[in-house]
């Protein structure tokens, strides 16, 4: 029980991860639609539609500017929603957690498995989007393959934040609050569709200090543009550090919810 429950995590968490992976593969056709369709829709509507009105952003064509943001958004959505609505369904409606806790696995194993799976789903989506974006000519290979390993810590970050909300939500409907009040504003204001640099300076600090997606977009854009500055070091440390914090918080909130 020591060290905030971290010592209760075992290899068994991989069996939980694998259960979710197997369920994902069983319905792969429907699961593989979003990463292929979403970038196409966004690129057509925003990249080429809105983009037609914009010459370029700091010398970069608009579709190229938003491409790394689209990958970041997809990682955020898939990891966050997997560990909120989907985890909640498994926990509350399907009683899957109750069934697993009757085996040698601990609650910490279950939560860790859920977070790892949420991150994996985000990473799979990032990986599937890369060929689509490449075909549109908005990212370069092989440098953009680096988006895949970067999706892992980003996925753990959004999955852990999701698990925290799942652990405290009184009902599945209440998960709409973080979805609309936290995820949607981040989707719009994290340097996704316009550069953070046009915001007032105080808001720029706010974005890089407090918004997970702003840091992920900044990192991913540095990769696709192949322009590496000290800022990305900050982004990486921020993502890993905050992911670790929310992971531990999520673990303990879930213990509080489930151990009665």
């Amino acid at each position: 029980m020591g060290y905030f429950g971290l010592t209760e995590i075992s290899r068994g968490s991989l069996a939980v991860w694998r259960r979710n992976f197997d369920a994902f593969i069983r319905t792969y056709k429907v699961n593989f639609i979003p990463p292929f369709v979403e970038p196409v829709l966004y690129l057509l509507a925003l990249g080429y539609g809105v983009g037609a009105l914009i010459e370029d952003v700091n010398g970069i064509p608009y579709p190229v500017f938003i491409a790394p943001a689209l990958v970041s958004i997809s990682v955020m959505y898939s990891a966050f929603f997997e560990c909120t609505y989907s985890s909640y369904v498994r926990m509350y409606y399907q009683k899957t957690f109750d069934a697993i806790i009757a085996t040698p696995l601990s609650i910490e194993d279950i939560v860790t498995g859920e977070i790892l799976w949420g991150a994996t789903r985000g990473t799979i989506y990032a990986g599937l989007m890369i060929p689509v974006l490449f075909l549109f000519g908005v990212i370069d290979l092989p440098i953009s393959l680096l988006l895949i390993p970067c999706a892992i810590p980003a996925g753990i970050l959004f999955a852990s934040i999701g698990i925290c909300f799942t652990a405290i939500t009184p009902s599945i409907d209440s998960l709409n609050y973080p979805a609309f009040l936290f995820i949607t504003p981040m989707f719009l204001f994290s340097g996704t569709f316009f550069p953070i640099s046009i915001l007032p300076e105080s808001l720029q600090y706010f974005a890089f200090g407090l918004l997970p997606l702003a840091n992920v977009v900044s990192l991913n854009r540095a990769i696709t543009a192949a322009e590496f500055s000290p800022l990305i070091l900050y982004n990486i440390i921020w993502i890993i550090g905050v992911a670790a914090i929310f992971f531990v918080i999520g673990l303990n909130l879930m213990r509080r919810r489930l151990i009665i």
Binding site: R19, D22, A23, R26, Q94, K95, T96, D98, A99, A102
Partner: peptide, 12 residues
């Protein structure tokens, strides 16, 4: 363990 509530995994 045979729990009171059926908690078989509906995805499988």
């Amino acid at each position: 363990i045979v729990p009171q509530e059926n908690n078989l995994d509906p995805d499988f």
